[in-house]
């Protein structure tokens, strides 16, 4: 099974590749539009700021490549947020593959931001990626997020509900980090590798 991880410049590339390696999958990391367009399965990781990530994707000529993908695509953390229309982080237009807008998490001593740590997810719609994962803890770390949108498939509670996973057709996204979510994360990645 071959998988291409988009080199979005974020710092979680190594941990994602290690997690895939633990599942017996050797992933190639690429920023080459031709390689990504020909991949049977694509992951879009991301850590950092939305504007930086979008300008990086644009500078590699990847925006249209990603928009035109017809294979399973999984956006992780910032990578999930980039799938949507717009992010309040740096007032950034994103890929627009899914309808919705990313907003900033409010911060207070009662509810610190970023939302950091292990939170449970509650499924709100059918999603093959979440098979056998109802109620498990996943590792989240994000200062921006999406409230529930029509394509939300699970939510986490943090001062109200936030989208924990989204899906529409072959486009999937998770706000948490499966590559750092222990056995539950490994199972989610394995589910993605199986989905069509």
């Amino acid at each position: 099974m071959s998988v291409v991880v988009i080199d979005s410049g974020g710092a979680n590339l190594a941990s994602l590749c290690h997690a895939l390696a633990r599942l017996g999958v050797s992933a190639s990391v690429s920023r080459d539009p031709a390689v990504i367009a020909a991949a049977p399965r694509v992951l879009l990781p991301g850590v950092g700021a939305a504007a930086d990530a979008m300008s990086r994707l644009a500078s590699f000529g990847l925006v249209e490549t990603i928009r035109r993908l017809e294979v399973p695509l999984l956006g992780i953390c910032l990578g999930m947020q980039l799938l949507f229309e717009h992010s309040a982080e740096g007032d950034t237009p994103c890929l627009g593959l899914l309808p919705g807008r990313v907003e900033r998490l409010p911060a207070s001593p009662e509810l610190p931001a970023p939302h950091m740590g292990w939170n449970t997810v509650t499924r709100t719609a059918a999603d093959a990626l979440l098979d056998r994962l109802e109620g498990r803890h996943f590792y989240f770390v994000h200062g921006y997020g999406l409230r529930p949108v029509p394509c939300t498939t699970s939510i986490c509670e943090y001062g109200g509900p936030w989208s924990a996973s989204v899906a529409r057709g072959r486009v999937h996204g998770v706000q948490f980090h499966p590559e750092r979510s222990g056995a539950a994360g490994a199972l989610l990645l394995a589910n993605f590798l199986q989905c069509s």
Partner: peptide
């Protein structure tokens, strides 16, 4: 360590 750990 990064290869071994599946937690942050």
């Amino acid at each position: 360590v990064a290869r071994v750990l599946d937690i942050p």
